[in-house]
Amino acid sequence: MTDITPEPSNTSPLDETSLDGHTIDELSDYLDRGRLPRDPSIESSAAAQHALAALSRLRAVAPRIIRADAAYFAPKNENWMSRILDQIGVQAHAGRDIPIPYDVPGADLSISEGAVRALVRAAGDDTDGLVVERTQLDGDLETPGAPVEVHVIVSTFADADDARVVPGFRRLVIDTIREHTDLVVTRVTVRVHDSDITDEDLDDDGNLVPR
């Protein structure tokens, strides 16, 4: 039979009939092992070397394939997020109920712990130069008058003056909580993440000491 196909016969570096007796599977394993221990029959075969190089290149571009996919697989409508938000809204992290004393018989007012933490984050949003990352309320929130500690982790912007920005934010947190709740806040700790603050700015517990 006369083969007159115009294609070159050896286009695929992974054609197993011309891998000097090696297989794609075997060469993939060899690559996975970091080509160790050294296998002379693979290392001395030009075809196997060619195949290994191709497998390495494929591995290198693999993450890019999924990124290219993302363009094709982008959600087709905006509803997809609201469906998820609807579902998690039911189980939002509300936390404990903090009672609000109210002078009307039968009235039962409360604010959720999650809402107070949102207020602390909002205080950060109102402060130039920092972003609130994590908030935490420690203490017996459900008992009126019990001491409560507020811990906040923030990052400050590179050009922000921490010694000025952080105490201002701390003051705002105290005022905001006082305005919206009857919590007795005995301590507010603001820890600055990724920032250069010298030891003299902090007390032993990591509180920034206003100067």
Binding site: F73, A74, A92, H93, R121, E133
Partner: peptide, 26 residues
Amino acid sequence: ASRAADGDIRAFEILMRRYGSLMRAY
């Protein structure tokens, strides 16, 4: 991610917007 972990649903929205397509492709 820290904000979202803290309970900020808007931060979580940003996370979904950022990685929704990639996760769907995946």
